[in-house]
Design a binder for these strands. Structure first.
Lengths: 92, 92, 92, 92
DNA sequence: ACTGAAGGCTGCCCGC
DNA sequence: GCGGGCAGCCTTCAGT
């Protein structure tokens, strides 16, 4: 085992984890600032979370549709198959 | 309610969250790199976690675990313990 | 494709998943009970997890951790280690 | 610390965890059975997961609407407030 | 200080 | 045997 290599890897990880923690701390400060300006932090968190979800949802739906299309295989060209796919797409 | 102020706050938060996600991704890459160099990632994570706690806390935790385990009596007297021992023997 | 057969299979699965969820809920309750009786839940979970692994695996894991930690050299030589030591001193 | 009490608690937990593992094993068997009957296990898992999600979604949306209504407070009776609530409800 | 909830992370299981 | 996907665990956060 190469000790130096391991040591370097661990140190890089710890450095990055510190940066991550610092950023998390900055985020907390912003929420505190928002609160002191009269905003509802709980709602703000929900808004941020929803916006994140919405972005993910698109990619997600596409994956689902691909899965269904693949599962249907040749059926995808039949009226019934297309109806199923259309239904899935409407969910977007 | 000041809409512009709210918008600015949300944007600052989202910017920071993106940075945080990027760093998390970097960390994952380093573990992947470590793995490809033959290191045991699971162990590395444990080592990193241990180093985060100070030595005092670590010692206390160990003591507590020992206390609890002692209170349970020897492993061999429990059904699950016996199953584990049997399994270990089969592996030999 | 036999629709009824599929339906039956799905229903059996969902029935079992419900049972599983109920049991998980029971387990949570026991931990809550333990906590209200003054036990340290976090430690209990660690003890339970350790008992799941057989002794051999546990010993190997410990050895590896020691090996990795030794490779990193003394904690005191790293920035994070120094921070931890400082923090520990402040707590005294 | 009451050793017997701790021991009893741990044993109850371990008993339940075993039951849970057994059920998980049963579920696996059903999927295997389905597969041998020509069903696409991957799709089945998605179907089961989606049905679970759908159930959660309703409760989830309600929570969100309640949160917004509470945040709007008296505003909920104004046209603008009602528009916001309606928008949230449409998401159902 | 405790509780309940939300998000991120780890370990597991499957398919390749 | 490996990597991706998914469920469960742990930690953190707002509220009481």
């Amino acid at each position: 085992m190469n000790n130096n290599q391991l040591k370097t890897l661990i140190e890089r990880i710890e450095r990055l984890e510190k940066e991550k923690a610092d950023i998390a701390s900055d985020i907390k400060e912003i929420y505190a600032e928002a609160k002191s300006n009269g905003f509802d932090v709980k709602i703000m968190r929900k808004v941020v979370a929803n916006r994140k979800k919405d972005e993910k949802a698109l990619a997600e739906e596409k994956t689902l549709i691909n899965t269904y299309e693949a599962a249907l295989g040749p059926l995808a060209t039949t009226p019934l198959g297309q109806a199923a796919i259309k239904k899935a797409k409407n969910a977007e």
